[in-house]
Design a protein around this nucleic acid. Sequence first.
RNA 1: UGGGGGAUGGUCUAAUGGCAAGGCAGCGGACUCUGACUCCGCUUAUCAAGGUUCGAAUCCUUGUCCCCCAGCCA
Length: 561
Amino acid sequence: MEKIKEKEGKPLDFIRQIIAEDLANGKHQKIITRFPPEPNGFLHIGHAKSICLNFGIKEENSGICNLRFDDTNPSKEEAIYVESIKKDVAWLGFDWGDRPFFASDYFSQLYGFAIDLIKKEKAYVCQLSPEQIREYRGTLTEPGRESPYRNRPVAENLELFEGMKNGAFPEGTHVLRAKIDMSSPNLNMRDPVIYRILKTSHHRTGDTWQIYPMYDYTHCLSDMLENITHSLCTLEFEDHRPLYDWILDTLETPCHPRQIEFARLNLTYTVMSKRKIMQLVEGNHVDGWNDPRMVTLSGLRRRGYTAASIQNFIDTIGVGKRDSWIDMTVLENSIRDDLNSSAERRMCVLDPVKVVLDNYPKGQIEELEAKNHPQKPDMGNRLIPFGRELYIERSDFMENPPRKFHRLGPGREVRLRYGYLVQYVSHITDKDTGEIVEIHCTYDPDTRGGSAPDGRKVKGTIHWVSAEKAVPVTVRLYDRLFIVENPEADKSVHFTDQLNSESRITLDGAMAEPCLADLQPGNSVQFERQGYFCADSNDWQDDAPVFNRTVTLRDSWAKRK
RNA sequence: UGGGGGAUGGUCUAAUGGCAAGGCAGCGGACUCUGACUCCGCUUAUCAAGGUUCGAAUCCUUGUCCCCCAGCCA
């Protein structure tokens, strides 16, 4: 059969090709996938790849996608993670219907299948210690040895396994193992452990069980019980596929999902593993799991990333089998794209310096009209107060500017956005610090709104706020967390020694146009000429606004310097 | 030195025996009341060597490099 390569003009990735073919040739009528997180941590952008893949396939094919918590290890898992995972998946924009599933829902059935395996002489209770099991397993190049317990009679296995279940033995003394092949070149097939004793309370089943099934055993059977058609997982499970298939084949299950592996996501200038993310939190290198510098979904959300931008990002990077590193700029670009069209424009001066308009009437305040979006008139206009005293960005003035500097300086005229054209008169410098404390200008009353009736061109347009009416706000400038592309590459340096010391810069003296104080936590706006910012969802107070910088605008001037 | 995977510009993805295409990054330019957006242009790639073929990124052979696996974690 001809391969199905694209849908609606867009090439299909290798997984979607397989699925399209399975549908076309009648192997499946309905596609069922699943997203199977372990509830032992918070979701990150890497999980988003799997979520978008599994739920995306469901949507594209009118199928089903289950959310299934892989909760087979009670010593690591907690209920709070279940809730945060649900929240993140829902936020990303996906719906698992009315049935969240748990591997722990299948514990009874799984136990039954284990008994079937014993009866088929395909599983046995082994009393080797963990150290001995490791020893007997052999190495990458040498075959393993068979356990002395391998050929126990079925009845004895049944009795011992029941004993394990009933708590007759301490942890570590007995395990149930699949009887496969101790000389297999694939270590996963050397009689893998499928049940272990764990006298730990489970977040859902409490103390009902003293034995818990292992991942390899649980996952394929859970997939089977849910009639999953395509079980998508990351590359490191490729070696586990023979075991996945062996268990289902041996139990002669009515349904046999196909496991397909794809490459996990790596992003430059960050770390993705749960363990490393945990270390950042526990070492207080960041402010918790939802620190806006983190690539956790909760962190990205708080940073101002939208679900659409993340879906779009995942869509852009594709799905393949090679180890790859996606450049952080691709993620940044996806949120710029989204916010460029959706975010209203505002003005906020991050590092203010005062400007006095010598010829502007003292005490006068007027309201000037500004567009909320320059390309979208339907987003409306707003009024901004203007007065004799203003603040502009310190970096928008130079005493000795270079030729290409389009901003304010001695002898220069600039436009105040949506305001007036102003002409430099003088400036005052602090004698001790050398810092510029005040700039004097005159304004041209004929240029109200920013256009010159005589048609004269002004190269620079800068943002401003009224000194009298502006509201002070806190602004947090976030940047990438690490100073190197791959913090894990250099094994001789600890990854936390490569943190970017300027990944968060807090500005307490920023001055914003008044209506910025009316935002709700989570709202995003563009600060013109600066970037996209959102009202922080944790720390925002109506009388003390806090903004997070989501991403800067592209800045070809900064690059030139 | 066993087994399982993978190699296409700086980076990610496409091509499924028939003109190596696109995104991001970079460089140059146009436009501009955001040095934004938008638009235009440009640089840069098939791991290597052989073979099959009118024609190879794609098929074959040999080799090289990279990733994963020796948890009672997932």
